[in-house]
């Protein structure tokens, strides 16, 4: 019972940041048809900027809870500034080109952005534990649970529900859904697709950076940090169905719980199990478990 609870909470915690990152990846894919390897760089940039700011604020005498303001600042700055710059210079010129070529171009972009991190922030790891001290711990079922981890679960719920509401309840969201359903039809209906693309790319970048910024206080932020997450969020997105928000949530939950189980019970299969599931989904249901509805074209 205790074990099941631990697996559940660890799995949820792990799933929550994966979900936030994968959500950004999946909406960019759903709308722009770009599988963005550089998404891992937004994540890394978010983490670095957050860790850096937390350190700065802390030396300025800001309280532990106050340093948490670094998280939204980092996510928005990286997403909006870096996201805009990249969309305007590179991504804009890739729309409509071969999907595989686009992946390669974003891979190139990923490598460039990773190295710029090193040039800007140096090679030494950053530690920014202050926000985690600010969160009280809880006893759930007799087991101590880290408050910061629980706050991450709450945040992912909020982000998930907010995204769903934006897509389904607002004018903008409906434009986006129309484009996901049928790009050509959306253009024919007079929707300014390029503008929607730009906004969605930036929104996706903010989500990627937010995932990184939120996870930063719980780890040491060091070079090569975006490499693992990008391929993990690929797995999440492939499992759930590329372009699907619900799919990203289910995919993240599956990967999170599976991994928490593996770590506690069977450490040898920790990574293997994630990719085995990814391969299995690709083999038996290549469009993913929850692929979004599409106009059928023949």
């Amino acid at each position: 019972m205790n074990l099941a609870l631990t697996i559940l909470v660890d799995g949820l915690g792990y799933a929550s940041y994966l979900f936030i990152v994968s959500l950004g990846l999946t909406i960019i894919f759903g709308v722009l048809k770009i599988l963005n390897v550089a998404h891992g760089a937004f994540y890394a940039w978010g983490a670095y900027l957050c860790a850096f700011l937390v350190g700065q604020f802390s030396t300025m005498g800001v309280s532990d809870i106050g340093t948490m303001i670094a998280i939204p600042i980092a996510a928005l700055t990286v997403g909006i500034v870096l996201g805009s710059m990249i969309e305007r210079t590179i991504i804009k010129n890739l729309y409509g080109r071969d999907e595989v070529l686009i992946v390669l171009a974003t891979f190139g972009l990923f490598l460039v952005l990773e190295d710029i991190i090193l040039l800007v922030f140096g090679v030494d790891p950053y530690f920014a534990y202050q926000p985690t001290y600010a969160m009280p711990g809880f006893l759930i079922g007799g087991i101590y649970q880290d408050g910061y981890k629980l706050s991450m679960i709450v945040l992912s719920l909020v982000v998930g529900i907010a995204s769903w509401a934006v897509l389904n309840r607002t004018h903008w969201g409906k434009l986006v859904s129309a484009i996901i359903f049928d790009n050509d039809l959306a253009i024919a209906m007079g929707i300014n697709v390029r503008r929607v693309f730009y906004v969605v790319f930036v929104a996706g970048a903010v989500l990627g950076a937010l995932g990184g910024a939120y996870i930063a206080p719980t780890i040491s932020v060091a070079p090569g940090f975006g490499i693992e997450v990008i391929v993990l969020s690929f797995a999440v997105v492939v499992i759930g169905g590329m372009g699907s928000i619900v799919g990203a949530a289910i995919g993240a939950l599956m990967v999170g719980i599976l991994r928490a189980y593996a770590v506690l019970q069977w450490p040898e299969i920790e990574l293997f199990v994630v990719y085995a599931v990814m391969a299995a989904v690709l083999i038996f249901r290549p469009e993913g478990l929850f692929a979004p509805a599409k106009a059928r074209k023949i």
Binding site: V100, V103, V231, F234, A235, V238, I269, E270, L271, F272, V273, V274, Y275, A276, M278, A279, L282, I283, P286
Partner: peptide, 13 residues
């Protein structure tokens, strides 16, 4: 591309 990636990451794992 993705299926190949998944298989290679299984071996890596």
């Amino acid at each position: 591309a993705m299926l190949n990636l998944a298989f290679s990451m299984v071996l890596f794992g």
